[in-house]
Design a protein around this nucleic acid. Structure first.
Lengths: 215, 215
DNA sequence: ACTTGTGCTTATCACACGATAATATTAGTA
DNA sequence: TACTAATATTATCGTGTGATAAGCACAAGT
């Protein structure tokens, strides 16, 4: 390979350079792993490719993380933190505007960071330990927030009368596939899936379909 | 390994037994590859696992198919034939009932054969030769049929005013994710994603959302 | 009975995988 | 400058990968 510290973004103070550099590499490995896991799945992504993308050697993954699976969990924890920040679902009140914000946020996030949906789709396909960890510790509580909100709106007649168990995957699929499969969209329609025009039209459509305004 | 002809469903007439058995194995390999490709992606699926699932030895794949990729193409051609039979989109007239049938067919097919959506989602994620082959030779013409139908209905006011480029992935995502991620749905809601109740509720919801009846 | 052809089985190729051990290098401290 | 702890680097382990070659089994045709 051929790596030197000058290849990486260097810190400043010598006193903190080492610690910062170490934390930086951790983040770079997580960022690289995010892309590789999203593209090739857990099994298909290789630690060598992840390390190369981060400008590091393959054994550094096992030095900074316990295993490939621990790195995968770190990736998902970061992604879920990011979508929480984008949606702000937990503290919100049960209103139509909240739901509008959630829908638009889902589309915006899927366009900005398609990796989360790609990884979740990959894992949601196969039963197993990774899916159980994902659902039990991360997906279930967030899904609960969304289904509760939806049920409230339906009860008030502010949302289409669709069971919340159905609406969950329906909404996430409708909001994310266009961006998870961005390359396919680009080939099919010769348009940029992450352009503001597409994202806006996509969000507007979903809001209009799911939260019809009683005229 | 330990294989004998008695492990496989045997033919009848000795005159045709060899040829039938060969065609049978081809089909069994395609069926096995369908499951493996859907679960682990093209790169993650191993020819040994495919062969084992079909009750065959790994080199038989290269005997009956040119390569792993040729087997993958055979899988997709079979799946696309199946969904064509389910939807019957090509000869249909441009009516609301046709669209209702398409929507219900998409959901029904995703529930019965989640493998197509799983494979397409995997491939739609990464630019490359496989995606280009898929889109150019198979997806684009079918997508065209659907977007043309949609545009006609929108012009007539019989469908929600959503651009057909947006509706394509929106509809397919909304119709398929629940079933592509069946294992996740099962864990989340403790329900069978392929049960008639779920499939019906899912279809009804999509029809109601996309083709609102002007009351 | 003999040959031919089709498909199966075994062995093996060169390479990629995740993980670990051993060594080298560096930074911080005394 | 010596020493120590942290990180980087190299080498290597056992295993799995897709593909191919060589030889075998057996039915079909003569």
């Amino acid at each position: 390979m051929e790596l030197s510290t000058s290849d990486l973004p260097t810190g400043d103070q010598p006193a903190t350079r080492r610690a910062r550099s170490s934390a930086d590499l951790r983040h770079q490995l997580i960022a690289a792993a995010m892309v590789e896991f999203a593209s090739h799945g857990f099994e298909g992504a290789s630690t060598r490719a992840i390390a190369a993308r981060a400008g590091a050697h393959q054994p550094q993954i096992n030095y900074h993380f316990e295993s490939k699976e621990a790195l995968w969990k770190a990736v998902l924890e970061q992604l879920l933190d990011e979508i929480d920040a984008e949606l702000g679902l937990d503290g919100a009140d049960a209103s139509r505007e909240t739901m509008v914000g959630v829908i638009r946020g889902l589309v915006r996030f899927a366009a900005r960071r398609p990796e989360l949906n790609r990884i979740m789709i990959q894992e949601g396909t196969n039963p197993g330990a990774r899916l159980e960890w994902l659902v039990e510790t991360h997906v279930a509580p967030r899904a609960r927030l969304l289904t509760d909100l939806w049920d409230t709106l339906v009860r008030r007649g502010e949302a289409a009368p669709v069971p919340s168990t159905i609406i969950y995957h329906l909404l996430i699929g409708a909001a994310s596939l266009l961006h998870a499969n961005g390359p396919e969209f680009r080939l099919l329609f010769d348009a940029d899936p992450s352009s503001p025009e597409v994202v806006d039209a996509h969000s507007d459509a979903l809001v209009a379909l799911l939260l019809p305004t009683p005229t």
